[in-house]
Design a binder for these strands. Structure first.
Lengths: 331, 331
DNA sequence: TCGGTTGCTGAGATCGGTTGCAATAACACT
DNA sequence: AGTGTTATTGCAACCGATCTCAGCAACCGA
């Protein structure tokens, strides 16, 4: 590969660099005859433009950072999957940024994204802190957030309707005959986590039952602690809503190890709709978030903002996914 | 941010561009006094070098593509996690590339990585095809593979000792009293998958028992099919080795739905050592691969190759992780 | 036929760095 | 003092594109 630059193509096609450049990036500005010739020659040489050079000159690259707290969490993994797809459909390259919940890292990624002229970035926050970091950067570089954001204004967001999701779960459980329904919270700090919890509290109260929060911790051990708490209760709930699928897994696992059977002894319902849930033992009933859509929409929002400056806040509808972890109450 | 370029720093520090450049990238070539002054000024301005410009000029960037078939598979997710960490410890940026098993995509990523002067890439293959794609690119750009590679020569690799891993599993099961041990294969096409299967076949034969391959499919449904096959047998094995954790999950889930209990009715052991396994129901006994090490080593190998041209093939030792999915045989 | 578009292409500066080479300063040695 | 290093720094070309500006030809209407 004798270093294919725009100049060698230009020479080979007998035109000037600038014409080749136009042939690629502003086709209508070149006589169609010339353009096709150039394209043909380029094709023959196996030429592609250097994204780096382009980025340097135009001050806008195709690198888009995906900032997540933990790629190991299947929710973020699924998000990453659909995002990569959406991304390279549109010629973007996803930069995987894992913060591990460390705000310093988040900051670092933001400055890095400026440095490489990222047109925008996607943030799936673990804590409110992440979204606050945004402000320090004046939104100078556009970002879209997979969560609600305090104040709901300057930055585009996409989320699912937490309240509706919890409602779905509650209705399903009520329909099955459950009246005492506990809750184990998930990754704390996120607005959506907060919203789900609030929704649970409110809706429970509305339906006349007293809410039972088994654990409100932030980590995965919330599941274990929740299960323990459950076992210590004199009159434990007959069903448990977990703030997200991972926590639901943890709950079921902890319960299982202590001899409690799902759904025979207690029903468990998650929130996320991870594919993995279908392979769990038992398969997890859950409130599905349209993760795939979220990825595409996030990118669309970003592009839209770049185009006309509009910042939208999309709220998607969740959906109930009934699998094997819920059934009628024990007695 | 009035566009911080090297020139503004130079002016502010009263030196020439080239001196600033050296102060950063070849510190020993600048009088320490001057260097410190420059660095201080830069610091004050909040200046960082443009990785794009650097890459363009030096023809080597800090972008390193991580090519995986499916980030949704926790094995690759864990790999990605440790790799991002290893990567940004050394100032690299990970580009997430998901092939979905499509060789065309793999090819695309290879050309892309050339275009952006990636110093090397990491490939965690789904099929042998992936490794063959490498040859089409003359290894012109360095790549290290998380798998064994046909011929074992031109490209650095890191894997764990498949045979040893299977041996560990077998020994554990034998120790528990199992004599009839089945096998469900995993993602096909990979050399390691092949190796594990071969090891199972050989070691079973050596120990005098007849191997029982419950399913040799490539997809996740192998688990389901394996379970069904298991149920149809007159004299089913008392334990099952799954080629990887995901398949083990699927097997246990399918078994569970059909009323077979693990480990009471049948023991199941996986291969990978995913953190997720600890949260499964029951917690999965498995052969642990040192995934975190693999990530770091992969990057080290790549750097080493770039430095002195050496290509190494590292084989790591697996380790048994006993959790709850194995116990003595039923009767 | 001539001034006024319009369409297409070439020149050349520029993006933000790097690096070989030349210039100068400083120091060592005889 | 004279000459030969050696350490520092400046100069300017270059990496591979983009884009403004200008040049030129063809076309239009009066």
């Amino acid at each position: 590969m004798p270093d294919l630059s725009i100049d060698v193509v230009a020479k080979a096609a007998g035109v000037h660099r600038s014409t080749v450049s136009r042939a690629f990036s502003r086709p209508e500005a070149v006589k169609s005859e010339t353009r096709e010739h150039i394209l043909r020659v380029a094709e023959g040489l196996g030429y592609t433009m250097s994204p780096l050079a382009q980025a340097l000159r135009t001050k806008t690259s195709t690198f888009i950072p995906l900032i997540v707290p933990d790629i190991t969490n299947p929710f973020f993994a699924e998000l990453a999957k659909t995002m990569t797809q959406a991304a390279d459909e549109r010629g973007y390259q996803l930069l995987l940024c894992v913060t591990n919940g460390d705000p310093a890292k988040t900051d670092g990624y933001f400055t890095a994204m400026q440095a490489m002229y990222a047109p925008f970035g996607i943030v799936a926050p673990s804590t409110k802190v992440d979204t606050e970091a945004l402000k320090r950067f004046d939104f100078g570089h556009k970002v879209v957030v997979i969560d609600r954001v305090e104040g709901d204004d300057a930055v585009p967001t996409v989320t699912v309707d937490s309240r509706r999701g919890i409602m779905l779960a509650l209705e399903h459980l009520h329909g099955l005959g459950h009246t005492s329904i506990g809750y184990v919270s998930g990754i704390a700090g996120t607005h959506t986590a907060q919203d789900r919890m609030d929704a649970y509290l409110e809706l429970s109260a509305e339906s006349g039952s007293t809410p039972v929060v088994l654990d409100s911790g932030s980590d995965l051990d919330a599941g274990t602690r929740g299960a323990e708490h459950f076992l210590e209760m004199d009159n434990p709930p007959t069903a448990i809503i977990a703030a997200n699928d991972m926590v639901a897994f943890a709950v079921m696992s902890a319960l299982g190890q202590r001899g409690v059977r799902v759904p025979e002894d207690v029903s468990v319902i998650g929130f996320d709709g991870l594919a993995l849930g279908a392979r769990f033992n038992p398969p997890l009933t859950t409130v599905r978030q349209p993760i795939a859509d979220m990825g595409h929409i996030a990118i669309e929002l970003a592009e839209k903002q770049n185009a006309d400056g509009s910042v939208d806040h999309i709220v998607l509808e969740p959906e109930l996914l009934v699998r094997g972890s819920t059934s009628g109450p024990r007695k």
